[in-house]
Design a binder for these strands. Structure first.
Length: 864
RNA sequence: GCCGGGAUGGCGGAAUCGGUAGACGCAGCGGAUUCAAAAUCCGCCGCCGCAAGGUGUGGGGGUUCGAGUCCCCCUCCCGGCACCA
């Protein structure tokens, strides 16, 4: 065995061994329990970043740990290969997205392989492969048949200069990211998936997921947002015709406090009012530039204009004025809302601003209402009772809603309904680099589904988008196709699918045999559901919800037999880094990588300014945020791997923090991880020259303590692994080595036997985290051919026993010392020992103790 | 704005149930080895204090023999907000 630790040789040796033994090839088998360990597949952005290393190391640690625990493990990998960055790269470098994507995949795959992950590469897939996305199209057609997929208008961001639809990410401060043009809202047709039909199942089945973090389940439940309320109407007469303005509210108990109603700018009533009113028309035009993003909607200035139109309050018969509000969205609910300024904070602010009446209709005992300022209790449902509400006076929330709903219903003007915040999933994207939607538009037959035997509709792979719309519009060979129904010339749909479709079922495809004739096959039933899914917390809602929905649709079509795709979920925290940018007057924002920046800091270490190294000119410090390609703040792990090796990179990543926690990137601890592995190697090298010797019956007491520490640390580390707390597992490895080195230095009789036993424990404990060094040392020390097949170590009871234990001594809850008692001492004995202690006597000053609290095995507290 | 999460030494973090705050590392300081350096090894290391001791887990209040941990209020940071993935 070589004396010096050389990661490159060691890692090559181990990886060659795994390659030649096909160590990670997963085969369905009833002989062992299965464990499907899946990390979210990466978008092939170019290079791995630290978030990937973190994600995939976590998955690999769990994979290898379960292998050693006797499971039949599957860990696959693939590529979320469609998406916007490929088009952006095409615009910049004139390279077709397909080529750019495949080049990135090749590079990143080699990076993943150099990290030594226990991946079954025979199951690799990329979502841009026709053999994969064919089944997106196939399932979409099944959804069309079942009415789950349907067509309606959608609102998009329109760049009037580039004549193209922009992603939310491409809209910055209301302007197009490349052109700087003011972005407009535009309504265009698109396909939707009826996820709201599954809203109750998606909500209720969260209870079937005990292995998911509570916070993720809470976020999903809130996102679905099931609410019970009342849908009702304000009748009105327009041009002699009886009409109804419908609204939905969860606060029907405040209906007597309605002082106006607000409709969206796109509402028919708004259009009617604006016909002969230039001011209204101008406001509606202004609303076209309101962002479609919820975050912008919620934070923007709420504006409104009265229409001069009135509707009738359904219960009081009073006339209520209709306003147009920029905060009311046509797409949500009815496109109109009732306004109760006294009991809704947003309405309150709006009423103050426009001097609209505020009418209190709910009171809370002991509180005084003032129309001058909002108070939290105004919207309190729990403790309020109705006032100024006629026959409803004195009723609480539930009773008032019941009574009011009954009265509305009797008039045919409303009823109780259940609503969801969740909206149907719009899947059409006006983009090139995605899965084509399998529809053909015929002048006579309308939108015709592509017949199954003509699937997949293949995307031409040689297009180069230039930023001005979808290049498919110019591809005659793609566009022109005979209508499947009538045979006349027709045009293909050029929209592609949301990439969330691609990632909604890839896990099921990994688990099957990549059949050309079926979406999934019978092997899927063996591996699914995923036993452990690992991915970033940023996917807590959308990706996970869409995958759950897609699974339920597949189940209802009889394709799979599970209700939920992911039994256990680990959401890793984001890896963050500094973000630097420059914002030219016109054109795209320019981002700078942290290594391209010189920082200025104040005395407290706060960042006060930044300049680009290249030109010395200032750049904007945007604070800290997720590592991403677009913001150029990712750190490429390659330099780390090249300098220290994969084991150090993996070890450091696990050691840096617990997996669920956000991690601000800093590489200052990498040296320490490398030092540790060098010590592991050196200790292994020392042992390799020694003969095997068993642990004797009796040990020197100091050596016994060391052995006890090793086994105790092992016990703790195994528990920590079950809790997914890998950082303390890494520390446990360090503690064990510290203990073994101490044994060696003390050199007591029998040290070698304790060191050999402890080191074999250490290697197995480390092998999921640093598999290469563990593999080579395990073989080199003659423990066996393959540490992968070695059993996980168990702490020995005999090594853990001790005769005497130390208890913390507190006086009045303050730590004052310690006492030693026999391991089996009972409460009375401990109390006596504590009271007899010198320190206790000093504090008692001759008085009797008021109380003595004994916590077995831990402490004793004397209250004076 | 709304939903979810977080805050512990100079830094990353540890502390199963409410029971010794700071494990394990990084950085720093002192020493050994060396012609010298790198590497390695040994020791010290929350803050105030010469010490006794006091004080300390983002800030304020509360419960308890005892609070980083439980309850109430506040501040700041991160993630998500439906076309980034």
């Amino acid at each position: 065995m070589q004396e010096k630790y050389t990661p490159s040789d060691i890692e090559k040796t181990a990886q060659t061994h795994w390659e030649s033994t096909q160590a990670f090839r997963a085969v369905a088998s009833k002989a062992k329990p299965k464990y499907y360990c899946l990390s979210m597949f990466p978008y092939p952005s170019g290079k791995l970043h630290m978030g990937h290393v973190r994600n995939y190391t976590i998955g690999d640690v769990l994979t290898r740990f379960h292998k050693m625990r006797g499971y039949n493990v599957l860990q696959p990998m693939g590529w979320d290969a469609f998406g916007l960055p490929a088009e952006n790269a095409a615009i910049q470098n004139s390279v077709p997205p397909a080529q750019w994507t495949w080049d990135n995949i090749a590079y990143m795959k080699q990076q993943l392989q150099s990290l030594g992950f226990a991946i079954d590469w025979s199951r690799e897939l990329a979502t841009c492969q026709p053999a994969y996305y064919k089944w997106n199209q196939w399932l979409f057609l099944r959804m069309l048949e079942k009415g789950i997929a349907y067509k309606k208008t959608q609102v998009v961001n329109w760049d009037p200069v580039d004549q193209t639809v922009l992603a939310n990410e491409q809209v910055i401060d209301g302007r197009g990211w490349r052109t700087g043009a003011l972005v407009e809202k535009r309504e265009i047709p698109g396909y939707y998936l009826n996820i709201t039909k599954y809203a109750d199942q998606l909500l209720d089945d969260l209870d079937k997921l005990p292995g998911w973090p509570e916070r993720v389940k809470t976020m999903q439940a809130n996102w679905i947002g099931k609410s019970h309320g009342v849908r009702f109407a304000f009748p009105y007469t327009l041009d002699g015709k009886e009409e109804k303005l419908w609204v939905y509210t969860t606060r029907a108990d405040t209906i007597m406090g309605v002082t106006f109603v607000a409709v969206a700018a796109e509402h028919p009533l708004a259009a009617y009012a604006a016909k002969n009113n230039a001011e209204l028309a101008a406001f509606i035009e202004e609303c076209k530039h309101v962002s479609v993003m919820e975050a912008d909607m919620a934070t923007m200035e709420k504006k409104g204009v009265p229409t001069g139109l009135f509707v009738t309050h359904p219960l009081t018969g009073e006339q209520v004025e209709v306003w147009i509000g920029n905060y009311v969205l046509m797409g949500y609910g009815e496109g109109a809302v009732m306004a109760v300024p006294a009991h809704d904070e947003r309405d309150f602010g709006f009423a103050l601003k426009y001097k609209l009446p505020i009418k209190q209709v709910v009171a809370v005992a002991g509180q005084t209402f003032s129309a001058d300022a909002w108070a939290e209790w105004y919207s309190d449902k729990q403790n309020g009772t109705c006032i100024h509400s006629g026959k409803y006076d004195g009723l609480g929330y539930a009773a008032a809603v019941d009574a009011i709903a009954a009265d509305l219903s009797a008039k045919g003007l409303g009823e109780k309904t259940t609503q969801y915040r969740l909206r149907d999933w719009g899947v059409s994207r006006q983009r090139y680099w995605g899965c084509p939607i399998p529809i053909i538009h015929c002048g006579s037959c309308g939108s015709v589904p592509v017949p199954d035997d003509q699937l997949p509709v293949k995307l031409p792979e040689d297009c180069v988008p230039d930023g001005s719309g979808n290049p498919l519009h110019k591809r005659e060979d793609f566009l022109n196709v005979p209508c499947p129904k009538c045979g006349k010339p027709a045009k293909r749909e050029t929209d592609t699918m949301d990439t969330f479709v691609d990632s909604s079922w890839y896990y099921a495809r990994y688990a099957s045999k990549f059949s050309e004739t079926a979406m999934v096959d019978e092997e899927t039933a063996y591996w699914m559901p995923v036993d452990q899914y690992i991915g970033g917390i940023e996917h807590a809602i959308l990706h996970l919800l869409y995958s759950r929905f897609w699974s339920k649709v597949m189940r209802d079509l009889g394709l799979v037999n599970y209700d939920e795709p992911f039994a256990n979920l680990l959401t890793q925290g984001m890896v963050l880094n500094h973000i630097f940018s420059r914002h030219p007057e016109k054109g795209a924002i320019q981002y700078f990588a942290p290594e391209e920046i010189d920082l200025q800091k104040d005395d407290a270490g706060r960042i006060t300014g930044a300049r680009a190294k290249a030109d010395g000119l200032p750049v904007t410090y945007q604070g800290i945020g997720t590592m991403s390609k677009s913001k150029r703040n990712g750190v490429d792990p390659q330099a780390l791997i090249d300098q220290y090796g994969a084991d150090t990179a993996r070890f450091f990543m696990m050691f840096a923090s617990p997996p669920e926690q956000t991690l601000e990137w800093a590489d200052s601890g990498v040296e320490g991880a490398y030092r540790f592995l060098k010590r592991v190697w050196a200790f292994g090298h020392t042992l390799s020259a020694q003969p095997q010797c068993p642990v004797p019956q009796t040990l020197d007491s100091a050596l016994g303590t060391i052995r006890r520490e090793v086994h105790l640390t092992l016990k703790q580390a195994t528990y920590d692994l079950s809790k997914h707390q890998f950082n303390t597992v890494a520390s446990a490895g360090m503690k064990i080595l510290n203990a073994l080195e101490k044994a060696q230095k003390d050199g007591a009789e029998g040290w070698l036997s304790v060191a050999q036993e402890g080191f074999s424990i250490l290697l197995r404990l480390l092998s999921p985290i640093t598999p290469h060094i563990a593999h080579v040392l395990w073989q080199g020390l003659g423990h066996g051919d393959d540490i992968l097949t070695a059993p996980w170590p168990e702490p020995l009871a005999a090594a853990l026993v001790q005769d005497e234990i130390e208890l913390v001594l507190q006086v009045n809850g303050k730590h004052r010392g310690s006492i030693k008692v026999p391991a089996g001492a009972d409460k009375a004995a401990i109390e006596a020992a504590a009271l007899a202690d010198e320190t206790t006597q000093r504090f008692l000053e001759g008085r009797p103790a008021k109380k003595v609290v004994v916590v077995p095995g831990r402490l004793v507290n004397v209250v004076v």
